[in-house]
């Protein structure tokens, strides 16, 4: 499956990109497992506090990501 990953704020600094595509052999993947895969690529994320949104809605660790989903890595919000 193919999913889009988006990084914001501090997380875009760490990954040095705002968006990328991930190709996975699995047909679905839990957010928790996807996190470990991405953290393996960008080690510094392991020590960083962030939340995940799938298709623009906040997602828990057991949420199942599917083909074509958009997964956003969001650092603490700082609006206002």
């Amino acid at each position: 499956m193919k999913i889009a990953l988006k990084y914001f704020g501090l997380l875009a600094d760490i990954t040095n990109k705002k968006e990328e595509f991930f190709l996975l052999e699995e047909s679905t993947i839990a957010v928790s497992l996807l996190k470990s895969k991405v953290e393996n690529t960008y080690q510094e994320l392991k020590n960083t506090n962030y939340a995940i949104a799938v298709n623009q809605a906040m997602a828990s660790l057991d949420y199942i990501v599917k083909d074509q989903d958009v997964v956003a890595f969001l650092p603490p919000f700082a609006g206002g």
Binding site: G9, F77, A78, G79
Partner: peptide, 21 residues
């Protein structure tokens, strides 16, 4: 609490840090 908005606090010497509410 809910809006995904991010703030880069830029200092007078142009270095920066990421704001946290």
């Amino acid at each position: 609490e809910k809006a995904p908005v991010f703030g880069k606090e830029i200092f007078e010497d142009e270095s920066y840090t990421w704001k946290k509410n």
